[in-house]
Design a protein around this nucleic acid. Structure first.
Lengths: 185, 185
DNA sequence: GTCTATAATTCGATAGAC
DNA sequence: GTCTATCGAATTATAGAC
């Protein structure tokens, strides 16, 4: 019972932390504000997670959960990837937390590079194309740029898109980066 | 003479501020650190600029200085724009200051939207294409995503590119967003 | 487990001597 | 114009009562 309660408290703190970190960034999101959102004492936040930095580390734990595209026809890989990414970002604000914070926090930026290197790049490397690392980098510029403009900067023409429209516009670009001959450009 | 000296001091503070804001973001860049970089007393920073926020406002004053592309053939507009943007970002770190800070500071994000609305969107609107605002938004996702990955997140495959390579890879995408029929996708 | 009280820093900004 | 000294506020984190 006490175990149950503390688990619930912990989860409540994490949820409040994700919201605050995602809305304000690491520096402006205070332990006090997170505690207030979770309806708990600020000292408890430290007690549960040790420090603000460790709390952030857990709140920004992010698994991009890319689907296996090794059996998907080359022409459809781009659409499959983009559809998955957009849906993932729309449903879970953890990625927004990480993206926003990575701009001003080096450890968050390092984590972003880690996600790139361990989750995105290997998936593309399995597609049997040349220069998979470079292609993964180009895919990242478009995918992260969309997320930046939509969720962080909130440029009106980009926020106005439905998820389906976004997929339709971005997929050809991603496909291009995955399939175009690189040396010819 | 006193005028000259104070102008020099002011310029020195601004240069130090751009570097600090660009490296650390708005919150972590302290007036004290900026003053130390400029080899001046922290109180002078406030005396010259009034407050940290006003100092940032001047340090992040950014003119994208887009070239006139109204006479450029449609097929070359993308390359022209991308070449200009990449060169501009490589030479001047003011844009980096703005981009990094916009992630966690609402007034910087608003300024970014303002730059988009007053500098990028009107230029594309002059190209006589349909849905210029939407196209400008799509261009922004790719252009800003490249800047994010190269200057802020520093993803290895993206930082490894030369400026010319970057232009070569991005131009087709920008051209696509400027010329592709939008409803067909 | 929870909260009160507070320690220890650090920040932006100001006052006033020179 | 410049610097010393410092104020007042806010922060993370801790100590200890209950």
């Amino acid at each position: 019972m006490a175990q149950r309660k503390s688990e619930r408290t912990r989860a409540g703190i994490l949820a409040a932390a994700r919201e605050r970190f995602g809305a304000d960034g690491y520096e402006r999101a205070t332990v006090r504000a997170i505690a207030a959102d979770a309806a708990i004492d600020p000292a408890m936040v430290i007690r549960y997670f040790g420090s603000k930095e460790k709390l952030f580390a857990e709140a920004a734990e992010f698994d991009i959960r890319l689907p296996d595209v090794s059996g998907v026809p080359a022409a459809e890989v781009g659409t499959t990837l983009v559809r998955h990414l957009v849906a993932r970002w729309e449903e879970d604000d953890t990625f927004r937390v990480l993206l926003r914070t990575a701009a001003t926090n080096e450890s968050a930026a390092e984590r972003m590079r880690h996600v790139f290197a361990t989750q995105l790049a290997p998936t593309l490397a399995g597609l049997a194309v040349d220069q998979p690392a470079l292609r993964a980098g180009l895919v990242a510029t478009q995918a992260l740029g969309f997320a930046l403009c939509r969720y962080i900067l909130q440029l009106p023409p980009v926020t106005a898109l439905t998820a389906d429209q976004a997929v339709a516009f971005l997929a050809p670009t991603i496909t291009h980066y995955l399939t175009a001959p690189l040396s010819a450009e």
